[in-house]
Structures are given as structure tokens and as C-alpha cells.
Design a protein around this nucleic acid. Structure first.
Lengths: 352, 352
DNA sequence: TGCCAAATCTAAAACGTTTTGGCTGGGACA
DNA sequence: TGTCCCAGCCAAAACGTTTTAGATTTGGCA
């Protein structure tokens, strides 16, 4: 088993100086091509791998990009985050940057973790997910002039920092207009309580589309419960479905909620899409697999994550001065969970 | 916004030497208590945060532990891995160690990524998940004498490296004997094709328990499909359920598969648990939420991950010489998805 | 032959920390 | 009074790299 060797050792083996070896490996032009070749060969032979610490020390960069996992639990790494992390990792590794994942330990807030990350210099830039309306992490980073990319915008000003986002507003407008065209007039939305940006965005899309329909018959019913409180969500869904004038279509803020609607509806004896149309957002794997398949929107999380990696690296390298941004329109995936509004008498709800 | 300051600056501000400041902050006894106090105060005042690179360089440690994400996709970060990552992160941060996540980019194997991680010195130790039978990563790390902890054992020798694992064998024995006691004689298993350790372990448990029942009526039907090939799994499940002499109980190697069984069974008009008992493994959130709730085993992934963090750190610090190991028995979570075998499907033979 | 520019290489400094092996001054002790 | 010890502090080296400013060599040309 060969020990890791250093520049000094490679230099000694070739009777060159450390500086020459360093520059040769760096591909500098002021080193003769032949020398570069010899150095490269010897380095390989000795199993030379640059020491990060040495490099970091002089460059002032850590070669890491940080991601702070949100604190919710116990399984807050949902399929979105999982996909995001892998996409990010792939995008970074392609540029020779590594990804560090920071988690909060008991008693630490997400902001504390972020501060530690930034101040210790363990990361050269960070990626933020799940931007809240008026997010304190964003404020901190901007004030600190620390490179970051946010997955999601802040409600008001989108100009002062770099972000990339999905057009949830547009997506939910699309959803409503499709449903409207299919005859639905009363549409439900199962949403969350947290003041997240994407929630705001999507709800706004739904509301604006409803208003623009110019049809007094159009009606929206919105219920909200804390993000991970399944019991509360279920209760609200049941309440919505067992109301005398229940919606003929229900949209889930995210697939998870839409799938919950489907299951509750089925448990109550409603057939989908005959008695109820359901639309989600995210296109999680389970959405394709549900019966019927869940109609939803795909935001290509994996690709967006790769893209944010590239964006962040450009920011860190200082290649770009101004903030970057990118808004992508999610793809509408039509499966079997939505259809024409039921014409006639509604089936009796099975009491549970 | 205050710039990060260095030891030198703190030293200058107090008219002390860098060495003294370093030792004072390190809490060494050969620095007067009063001096230590003054140093600590000034360091706080100046916002001193130790520079990792400097520290790494002299200590030879990076302060990182690595985890290589398995390559499968697109969403290979399932709920197990998500929970594992957060648990690991929490366990590490408590010790001042950070977690780096390495992903493979196109064309790289998981082993390549691991090698890079180890050779570049970016991590002081690694955690391995999803151990295959005869895992090449394990071999590499052992040969290299690189500290690591595996979540899962290698089939043959469990002595030569550190691991922690769940007693899947015991769990599946439990599952079978419970089902047997409830009158089930023909039990199905929906498994995967990959030669993973946990698969081997659990299947063995089932088979040994079946053999030990000493009842010729006991019969096992096992089907296997590639881990992420949902279509294949569904087809196999349907095949199993539509057979003339279908099992009265089906066990899923993991909850995901068990839930799939439940959905397919319901789609085929079978009531659970009246017509079919289903048992899973993992206790994913969806298991509690399914109707009826899925009976399953809980391996407390989060806590196990924390534990592996502690184990790995002890290994890195060199506090422990010999390999460490820990085998935990998963908790049997009885929900509504299993019950007595249907009478008509099979004559009662005898109670155990 | 002498000079100059280009090509190639190098010494040394710098990055921020920890650790080693002292140094210093004062009190205890003979 | 001289010697020794000890608490408290420090200078310098070391870790491995990159970069800067220069040194050396080579060959062309007058």
C-alpha cells in the first residue's frame, strides 16, 4: 500500500524544484513540454494526489459547497430533497467541487448552522432550498456577501441575489384552466401552513386564474395544515370531501398531498377521476405508480439542481458579477387522475 | 460586517504570541487561567474562527467524514437514505466533524468515487451503506487501512471490519412465525434481484423459520425483480396474487414493496387483511399512513445512523483498535395489514 | 565576441495552525 | 548568597501548496 506522496517527493525524484512540479502539473506554459510530461508521469507513478489543506490554505478556498438540511422531522429528506442533493452533487463534482451537508444538532437553528458554515470557511458557497417568504438566511448571506444560490425566490425583490425557480404560479394557472375547460367550477386546494415561497407562488397562480376566468360560478376552497402533520391534512381532506357541496376537483400543493387526497377519496368510495379529479405537483415516483396515475407537474429537480451547481460555481469564481437567475416552466404530466367534471348526481359518501 | 480574524490578529491585540493564543484557546494547562480568559474574550470580540485549512494541514485530518451516494436512479435517495444522512449528520456535528456527500458523475463507478475520496484526503473516514455480498468497497478500504463503518455485514466474516446492522434474519423469522401462528401456511415474499446483504439476511431468516416449523404444509413463494423496476415488481405481484393457490400472506422485503402488494391486492379486489396479510420492513412514513396501516419492522434508522457516526469517530481518533460492531433487533410494529389466514383458502391444519 | 531576449527553471514567501523545545523570572530551599 | 525548580510564556519549525520575482541558460544576431 503506497503512502500518499507530496509535491516535494515528486520534485526530489526528478531533481526538480517543488515550484516547477507544481507549475508543471498546473499546465503552465513556462514549463517545457517535455518536463511537463515527465512530471505528470512521475506523479502518476508515485500516486501523487494534491493535498487539499495545502491548496486551501493558499487559495483561501475550501473546494466545498454547503447545503444545510432543513430541520423538520423525522424524515425531512423527501424525494425532492433527495433528488436535489444528487443533482447538486453531480453538478459540483464535474467541476471538482465537493458537497458538504450540514445538519443542525439539537438546539441549533438552521440559521446557526448556516452561520457556522460560512464563518468557519468550510464552504465557499451555499445552496438554499425551501425559501421562506422573507427568509433570514438570505438576509444573512447577502449582508455577508457570501456566494449563494437559492432554489426559490423571495416574494418582493428578485434582483438582489441569485436564484433559480420553477414557475409554480404558471403551473397552477394551467391546472385551473385545464380543469375549467373540463367543466370543473368548484376546485379545492390542499395546501400547507408554512409561509414558504412556493406555496405563495402556487396559490397566487390558482387565485389569479380563478379571478381571470370571469365566471361567478368559479369557486376555490383552500385548506392548510402544517407541512408534516398528516393527521391534520387527512382530517381537512375528509372534511372537504364530505361537505355537501364538495369540490369536483382537488389540487395538491405537492404530490404527497395530492396522493393523500386520492387515497382518502377512494377510502370514502369516490372513484377517480369519475367522481373527483386530482392534480399534484412534483412528479414524485409514486405519482406515476398510483392507480390511476396522478396528473402532475414535473420540475425536473435533478436538472435544476445541476444547474444551480453551475450557477453557484460561476458566482464563486467571480466570473459573474451580477446576480443570476433562471425561471423554468414545469412540464404538465397528464395521467389518469383528472377528467371531466361529473355531470349528475354525486355518489353518496361512504361514512367512515 | 467583520472580517474573519486569525490567531495572529488576536495575539497582536493582546500583545501575546500566536503560540500562547493557540494554546489558550486549546485550554492547555500551561497557560495561566487569567490569560486563557482574556484570550477567549478577545477572540470572541474579534470574531475569531479557526481556519480549517491551517488546522488540517498540521493535523493531517480534514474534519470530514464521507458518504458516497449509491448510483441508481433517478431517485435513489429513498426514505432510508434520507433518514440515514440526517442521523449521520447530527451524530457527526455533535463531535465537530462535518459530512461530505460524494456523488458519482457520469461514467464513474461508486468505487471510483470512493477511491478519490480516500486518496485526496478529503475525508478522514467513510460510511458505507447498502453493503453487497462480497463488496469491493469494503475490500478496498480494508486494504488501505482507511477508517470506515459499514451499515450492513459481509456475509462471511464479520470480524475484520466495523459494522452495525439490523437483525433482518431475526425479524423475518418473527414475521413467519407470527403468520404461522395465525394459520398462514403459504407465504409469499416479494424481493429484489440485487445481491445485497440485507436481502440475503432476510430471505435466510424466512427460509430457516419455514424449515424449522417442521410442517410439510408450509410453503414459500419468492419472486425477485431489479430494485427499481416497478413494472416488473407489479407484474410479479399480480402473477403471485392471481395464481390458483395464491399465498395467504405476502411479505415485502422493504415497505415500498409491501405497499405495492397492498395496492395491487386492493386493485384486484382483495381485502386486507381479510383475504391477504401483508408485512413490510422499514416502517417508512407511508406505512403508518396506508389503510390499513402496514405491519412492519422499525430499525430506527435515524438512531443507527447517529450511532455509526460515533463509531466512526472513535475509529478515526484511534481510541478503539479492534473493529466495532453492533447488531440491533428491529421492533415489530403491528398494524392492521396482517391477520388470521382466510379459512376457505386453505384447510386448518394445526396450531403451533 | 558580446549583447539581448526568450525559454526554462527556482528560491522564497505566504497562507494559519499546532507543537516542540526552549527561555525567563521569581520563589523555595540549602 | 547561590542554586534549582516551576509556572508561564514564546520562537521557530512544520504541514503542502501556489505564486512572485528573479536566476540561469540558450540561441540569435550584430
Amino acid at each position: 500500500m503506497r503512502r500518499r506522496s507530496t509535491l516535494k517527493e515528486v520534485a526530489a525524484a526528478l531533481d526538480l524544484s517543488v515550484a516547477t512540479v507544481s507549475r508543471a502539473l498546473g499546465g503552465y506554459e513556462d514549463i517545457a513540454a517535455e518536463t511537463r510530461r515527465r512530471v505528470a508521469e512521475k506523479a502518476r507513478e508515485l500516486g501523487y494526489v494534491p493535498n487539499m489543506a495545502g491548496r486551501m490554505l493558499v487559495s483561501g478556498r475550501s473546494g466545498f459547497v454547503g447545503l444545510v438540511l432543513p430541520i423538520r422531522g423525522p424524515n425531512f429528506v423527501d424525494s425532492f430533497l433527495g433528488e436535489f442533493v444528487t443533482g447538486l452533487g453531480e453538478g459540483l463534482v464535474a467541476k471538482g467541487v465537493d458537497l458538504m451537508i450540514a445538519t443542525a444538532s439539537a438546539g441549533q437553528s438552521e440559521l446557526d448552522v448556516l452561520k457556522h458554515l460560512v464563518q468557519s470557511g468550510r464552504a465557499d458557497g451555499v445552496v438554499l432550498t425551501r425559501i421562506a417568504e422573507d427568509d433570514e438566511r438570505v438576509k444573512f448571506l447577502i449582508e455577508r456577501r457570501f456566494p449563494f444560490v437559492a432554489h426559490g425566490r423571495i416574494a418582493d425583490d428578485g434582483a438582489s441575489y441569485s436564484w433559480l425557480d420553477t414557475d409554480g404560479k404558471g403551473a397552477f394557472r394551467t391546472a385551473l384552466s385545464r380543469l375549467y375547460a373540463l367543466g370543473h367550477r368548484h376546485v379545492g386546494l390542499v395546501s400547507i401552513e408554512e409561509r414558504m415561497n412556493f406555496r405563495h407562488d402556487r396559490e397566487e397562480g390558482l387565485e389569479s386564474a380563478a379571478a381571470e376566468a370571469g365566471d361567478p360560478a368559479v369557486r376555490l376552497s383552500i385548506v392548510r395544515a402544517p407541512r408534516f402533520d398528516e393527521a391534520a391534512h387527512r382530517a381537512q381532506i375528509r372534511g372537504m370531501l364530505s361537505a355537501e357541496d364538495r369540490p369536483t376537483a382537488i389540487i395538491g400543493l405537492i404530490d404527497e398531498l395530492a396522493l393523500m387526497v386520492m387515497r382518502e377519496a377512494e377510502a370514502m368510495g369516490l372513484a377517480i377521476p369519475r367522481d373527483l379529479s386530482v392534480i399534484g405537483f412534483d412528479n414524485v415516483p409514486a405519482a406515476a405508480f398510483a392507480t390511476p396515475g396522478l396528473t402532475t407537474f414535473d420540475q425536473a429537480t435533478h436538472e435544476r439542481a445541476r444547474e444551480s451547481a453551475g450557477m453557484l460555481i460561476r458566482l464563486i469564481e467571480g466570473e459573474e458579477k451580477g446576480p443570476l437567475s433562471s425561471l423554468k416552466v414545469p412540464r404538465f404530466i397528464e395521467r389518469g387522475s383528472h377528467g371531466p367534471a361529473p355531470r349528475h348526481a354525486r355518489p353518496r359518501i361512504r361514512q367512515i
